[in-house]
């Protein structure tokens, strides 16, 4: 039941043999050791596993690895790093929008997907676009504030997106 897939993950080409019933989330976490995307529910209800698939935020737990064949995947590891954080990452820190951190990668990916579609979202837009991302710690207030501030920062700088 294995199949060979070739895709780009965070800008780098990857070719692997995967079982047909392996989710994109399992593939990223187990095969590529990209553990930033989390498994929170395995049913598309919590958003902790969000990644960008061809630039769009999707639940990696509801996507098969084979479905990503030939596509471009961006995970949280493809954004910034210490000393060169993505504006969303920096804004989450500044606004104390991180607590336990388990939802944080999914939150940032959801926000990134939103800002690609809509660089100037209202608070209502942010709430709507991120309602599939559960957080039990923060109560969301500071997350929403962080996304709106990052949006402003990203609008001010036309090329803020880090790798890929």
């Amino acid at each position: 039941m294995n199949q060979t897939i070739s895709l780009r993950v965070n800008g780098l080409p990857e070719t692997h043999e995967v079982p047909a019933n392996q989710t994109l989330l399992q593939f990223l976490r187990e095969t590529l050791d990209l553990t930033g995307a989390k498994e929170g529910c395995n049913e598309g209800e919590c958003g902790a596993c969000l990644v960008l698939l061809d630039g769009r935020a999707v639940n990696a737990c509801l996507t098969l690895a084979v479905e990503a064949d030939g596509r471009e995947v961006t995970t949280i590891e493809g954004l910034g790093h210490a000393g060169d954080l993505h504006p969303l990452q920096a804004a989450f820190l500044k606004h104390a929008a991180v607590q336990c951190g388990f939802c944080t990668p999914g939150m940032i990916i959801a926000a990134l997907g939103l800002l690609r579609d809509n660089p100037d979202p209202s608070e209502e837009d942010v709430r709507w676009a991120m309602s599939g991302n559960l957080c039990r710690c923060t109560g969301y207030r500071q997350i929403i504030d962080a996304v709106q501030e990052a949006a402003a920062a990203m609008r001010g700088d036309p090329a803020p997106e880090a790798a890929p």
Partner: peptide
């Protein structure tokens, strides 16, 4: 003071390792 979370960078970059991330 609003000192930023000292474990913040590892959490916003996905570097933080939770038990389920250990192999």
């Amino acid at each position: 003071q609003d000192v930023p979370r000292v474990d913040g960078v590892e959490k916003v970059t996905g570097a933080a390792r939770y038990t389920a991330d250990l192999k």
